[in-house]
């Protein structure tokens, strides 16, 4: 840029713009800060307070003690872990081999297969038909498979990986094949190391999607022992069902109403902390993913 003298209107604009950005950041942070500070504060004070809470008052961890007595939170964490790991591992394997198959330009049918897959982005049978197929035909009602398998593959992820694979020079693969390498060797030893960033993005998509998922669990699962964390959270936060927790709170008998709110805040913090721990590391991959997706469109 040239060195230009700033006009008065430019300076005014910059000040207003900066203020606007600060306000926007405050709007993003305040709800989170409110929940976080409230979770460590005195329950009665929190209940009586009507504005935004931006500092801790009467520091204590009583809420957390109550939440940790709730066995469901722990089993929810375990189940979510199982679902995330299984979906991601299976999903990545399937995505990678499929994307490789449909990225082969010399195979006559690869474009047709890609169309067959992409079409599912435009038209679908809807929630009810899928439900009937999964419960009545596959018989996966109350099965973990209903949570894991349907979320492994998506046309969108396949397009991302396929696009990345087409950027790998075919001469690399051809020379490896001349040396006697099979398709699988070429894929795993040559192609995949070259598209690591895209793969990381897809892993992230799969992990986040499964971590946040509650709806399929709500419709397919009956046994509480298989519920993922988000479904337990839904009960605590939305349905307002804190009974399982408060029953244990005999020490605080009579104060259940007061603690109900605190329990909600503590539950939110406990369930969201892992995301915030990983957030700085995953952020750049997410940005990258959005851009790859955009280029492909």
């Amino acid at each position: 840029m040239m060195v230009e003298k700033k006009s008065v209107s430019r300076i005014v604009f910059e000040i207003i713009n900066t203020l606007f950005m600060l306000l926007l950041m405050a709007a993003c942070i305040l709800p989170v800060l409110h929940v976080f500070c409230a979770s460590f504060s005195d329950a009665a004070w929190v209940l009586g307070k009507s504005g935004v809470i931006w500092h801790v008052k009467g520091f204590n961890i009583n809420g957390y003690k109550l939440v940790f007595q709730n066995k469901d939170i722990f089993s929810g964490y375990m189940n979510t872990f199982i679902y995330v790991v299984a979906t991601t591992a299976l999903g990545m394997f399937l995505t990678v081999i499929t994307a490789y198959a449909v990225s082969r330009k010399d195979a006559l049918f690869s474009n047709f297969i890609m169309f067959f897959i992409s079409f599912t982005m435009l038209f679908n049978g809807g929630m009810i038909a899928s439900y009937i197929i999964i419960t009545k035909i596959l018989g996966w009602y109350d099965s973990r498979l209903a949570i894991i398998v349907p979320s492994t593959l998506s046309a969108f992820n396949l397009i991302l990986v396929r696009t990345a694979m087409t950027t790998v020079p075919s001469s690399l693969e051809e020379s490896a094949m001349l040396d006697g390498a099979g398709r699988m060797t070429v894929l795993f030893k040559i192609v995949l190391p070259l598209i690591k960033a895209t793969l990381a993005t897809v892993v992230l998509y799969l992990v986040i999607a499964q971590w946040n998922s509650w709806f399929s669990a709500a419709i397919y699962l009956r046994n509480r022992g298989k519920f993922p964390l988000q479904l337990i959270l839904k009960e605590v936060l939305i349905t307002g069902d804190t009974t399982t927790t408060s029953v244990n709170a005999s020490d605080y008998a009579g104060d259940t109403a007061i603690y109900k709110q605190l329990i909600k805040y503590c539950t939110i913090v406990i369930s969201t902390v892992p995301i915030f721990i990983f957030y700085p590391f995953i952020q750049k991959y997410f940005e990258k993913g959005v851009m790859i997706g955009a280029i492909k469109g």
Partner: peptide, 26 residues
């Protein structure tokens, strides 16, 4: 390209079961 097509088989089955069968389910 037998191997290539073989690699696409699981996905084809997947999309038949989870996308095209629900369309028939309409």
């Amino acid at each position: 390209n037998a191997v290539v097509y073989l690699m696409a088989v699981p996905a084809i089955v997947f999309f038949i079961v989870f996308s095209y069968m629900p369309m028939v389910g309409l």
